[in-house]
Design a protein around this nucleic acid. Sequence first.
DNA 1: TAGATTGTTAATCGATTAACAATC
DNA 2: TAGATTGTTAATCGATTAACAATC
Lengths: 208, 208
Amino acid sequence: MPKYLRVLSEYEQVNDDRISSSELGRRLGYTASQVRQDLNSFGGFGQQGYGYCVSDLKAEIDTILGKEKHFSAIVIGVGNIGRALIENSFFEENGFNIVAAFDVSPDYVGKEIDGVKIYDIATLNYIFAVKRVDVAALCVPYSAAKDVSERLVDMGIKAIWNFTNAEVCVHQPAVIVENVHFSDSLLTLSYRLGERQHSDMPQKQTSA
Amino acid sequence: MPKYLRVLSEYEQVNDDRISSSELGRRLGYTASQVRQDLNSFGGFGQQGYGYCVSDLKAEIDTILGKEKHFSAIVIGVGNIGRALIENSFFEENGFNIVAAFDVSPDYVGKEIDGVKIYDIATLNYIFAVKRVDVAALCVPYSAAKDVSERLVDMGIKAIWNFTNAEVCVHQPAVIVENVHFSDSLLTLSYRLGERQHSDMPQKQTSA
DNA sequence: TAGATTGTTAATCGATTAACAATC
DNA sequence: TAGATTGTTAATCGATTAACAATC
């Protein structure tokens, strides 16, 4: 569904406020049928004989995805990844508020990045006492991932956005985990590259 | 498949060199059946009555994913994301070689990061003349994504690892695109969080 | 031999696609 | 009214699960 939003935004910039399921499908790489099925499972946003109104559709999807809910987030670890999340306003753009950042390094603690204050990770508990925290972006080194994630769970975090290569909270159904596994992504690329190479005439499709 | 590798590595550190499909499934969140089916589609790596040898299995998967192929990569844009890729050795760990980095900023051009030299993006073409380049990690701002990706395609890049929020090379079947869409990931998290919230007693499952 | 666990086939389930009637 | 395009049902396809025979 987020992909719809992205494609609609790109379409909006150049075209008019109207799009058909077939055009949308073409841009998404889906069939028109697929698109209509998808959109309809959330409600009848289209108009027969006309198509979909782009701005309305975007607004509907915003609501579905909870952009208006303004969940609050903390960032743990302000290395390159953590900083990227803060500096590029990923949270704000998607309806989240960043309420704090954490790190272990005395070089960072006490400073701020784009107005977000950095606290000592040892004081992680306190934030939960004073603010609502829905999501934690986990941007710590692999070695710290297990430990920090367990602390977060104990403190009652609702969701973890995991940027570490660790498999986090696997048997913790109460916590939502969304993984951004760089290595998985790169290895998938590697696999596809290898496939492509040894057979430019694709035969048996296997999907690592 | 990359997930198998990750889980096997974690298992390896604590347990012995043997694992059953059911144990592996438990750790992956798959059924034992699923695991056997997956592994068997690539070859009979297991031993009946015994299970799978962890180190052998890892080696097999390394080969399947092409870790031994040593594809070469360039990084375009050395902001936080680009730097994270270089500094954390993501490429090296997964069998890739970084041959160069590029940026527009005179502050960066000419410098190096962890031994990787940074060139002016205007000179992008030259690298293709002197080195084999298989993959480009696209870590530029949204506004530059379309332009740079088109240049890469013209130059004959084989694959793009896309970190921008743009939909890149959609109708370019010759180029492999692997997307790491942070916003999609965060919005998926947002959606799941919203779902969870308004019904702790889950009913109709819809998957944004 | 008995126990365990895979490889593999068959059954089930869900997701994708095709088709067409409803309707703007 | 005619043309276009959705909403929705039915048909197809693929992926997941279950089951069990093969075999270590």
